[in-house]
Write a protein that binds this DNA or RNA. Structure first.
Length: 272
DNA sequence: AACATGGTCAACCGCTAGTTA
DNA sequence: ATAACTAGCGGTTGACCATGT
């Protein structure tokens, strides 16, 4: 089917919005809402396409937009959600009131991605040292091929940008967590490494048929999107991850983060 | 002071999903 | 069933600014 261009290319303004344009758009939406973005600019007296108006409203003019720097909690939340959802910025934004997908996307690319990669590289170094230590002290009980080492390394890297292939990491962390987690910082590190993958795997086991039936259409599309995003990972574990579960775990994370810092997490961890 | 470089962020573009006729 | 259409999403771009040389 032929697709009409989103706006006539002639006569419509592009580029940064002026204060006057912002005012016109805000006034119109305040009075009439935005039932039809395509018709809106004409009705509001703007020389912009509807798409541009929509973006301007959603990303900048909306009254519930939160301004200013992201808090560390917000940043951690983005990292965790990105771990699960990948580049589904709108889904991540839905969990951060007042933040837009565009803003989150920018923050990810400018700050958080680097931080995660740096963190991952540090983990790789630690793992490498541990590996050398183990092989030397254990006198190399079993041979390890270069391919195996490489696959381990690449798996770690992929875990940075996707949500797959990190079960080994999380399991290792879990097996040692109770012994090694002696400070709130350690606990947070464990949460970073394993919390979400643990959540996913536990939901995978526990979800019931009734749960599936009770889901809404929105939840099903969410599931489809997850399947689409993770189909190349050779697993459909994520397909059983639903919206209300996400909300539950998100709430749980945000409500427990404070107590984590205060060193009161041990009971929560033991639940998992 | 002038230029180069890198970071940040608003805005645009192309595409897809969903809806309607 | 399908063509036409809109809304929304994610990737990309480019302007602006700060910092370094």
């Amino acid at each position: 089917m032929g697709r009409r261009p989103c706006c006539e290319k002639t006569g419509l303004k592009k580029g940064p919005w002026s204060g006057e344009e912002d005012q016109l758009l805000t006034n119109y939406i305040t009075l009439h809402g935005h039932p039809n973005w395509r018709a809106l600019p004409k009705l509001a007296g703007l020389l912009r396409c509807g798409k541009s108006c929509r973006l301007r409203w959603i990303n900048y003019l909306r009254p519930d937009i939160k301004r200013g720097n992201f808090t560390s909690l917000e940043e951690d939340t983005i990292i965790h959600l990105h771990h699960i959802l990948g580049n589904r910025w709108s889904a991540i934004a839905a969990k951060l009131p007042g933040r837009t997908d565009n803003e989150i996307k920018n923050v990810w690319h400018t700050h958080l991605k680097k931080r995660v990669v740096l963190h991952q590289n540090q983990d790789d170094e630690i793992n490498k040292e541990a590996f050398v230590d183990t092989t030397t002290t254990a006198a190399a009980k079993r041979p390890t091929s270069p391919q195996q080492q490489q696959s381990t390394s690449s798996g770690d890297v992929s875990a940075v940008t996707t949500s797959g292939n990190n079960n080994d990491i999380s399991n290792n962390s879990n097996s040692n967590s109770k012994d090694s987690a002696t400070s709130s910082k350690d606990v947070l590190a464990i949460i970073d490494e394993s919390f979400w993958s643990e959540v996913v795997s536990s939901m995978d086991c526990n979800i019931s048929g009734d749960d599936v039936k009770s889901e809404t259409k929105i939840d099903n599309s969410w599931e489809d999107s997850l399947d689409r995003n993770h189909k190349d990972m050779g697993t459909n574990n994520y397909s059983k991850l639903y919206n209300h579960d996400m909300e539950f775990w998100f709430d749980h994370l945000t409500s427990t983060t404070t107590s984590l810092i205060a060193g009161e997490i041990s009971d929560d961890i033991s639940e998992f």
